[in-house]
């Protein structure tokens, strides 16, 4: 077993070269290079985490924007509904007032016409009375040969006409 039979002759060389090469590995590779490799990994993980956070923030911002847009849109829609309702109400009021206006004019003309009719009626009645008085005077003078006073004849016509 060379590990034991050569022990006395080789242990110092083995320990010395292990120290040299393992020392090199530790100081150059372990202390010098490994921290850089791990720093790269850490930087990458940080970047990935940062990117994920940024994406998350962007998404929530987009959500908030959409929500705000929706609120605004609803407000606009309500506003538009209000405008439409107001326009409808306005139109209804306007047409109502115009209808009332026209109705008033029509009533006025009806009343005027009624007045004219009544006046014509009265005129006609007066005419009839006059004609009847004259006719009654004539008839009396012709039939009885009497001269009837106009005033008396008028009273008699009035009595006969109006009862």
């Amino acid at each position: 077993m060379p590990q034991i039979s050569q022990l006395a002759a080789t242990y110092s060389s083995q320990v010395f070269w292990t120290l040299i090469f393992f020392g090199f590995v530790f100081f150059v590779i372990g202390r010098g290079m490994v921290p850089k490799v791990m720093a790269t990994v850490d930087a990458r993980e940080k970047q990935v985490a940062g990117d994920l956070a940024a994406a998350d923030a962007a998404r929530s911002a987009a959500d908030a924007e959409e929500e705000a847009w929706r609120v605004q849109e609803n407000a606009r829609r309500a506003e538009a509904q209000g405008v439409i309702a107001k326009a409808k109400a306005d139109a209804a009021t306007a047409s109502e007032s115009r209808l009332a206006d026209a109705g008033g004019r029509v009533d006025a003309r009806l009343a005027e016409a009624d007045a004219r009719i009544a006046k014509a009626h009265e005129g006609a009645l007066a005419e009839i009375e006059k004609v009847a008085r004259d006719a009654a005077g004539d008839i009396v003078s012709r039939v009885a040969g009497l001269k009837v006073d106009a005033k008396l004849a008028e009273a008699a016509v009035k009595e006969a006409l109006h009862g």
Binding site: A9, T10, S12, S13, Q14, F16, W17, T18, F21, F22
Partner: peptide, 12 residues
């Protein structure tokens, strides 16, 4: 102490 460069040192 002898520190000869051996095949062991070479493979290390």
């Amino acid at each position: 102490y002898n520190i000869a460069f051996t095949n062991s040192a070479l493979w290390m």
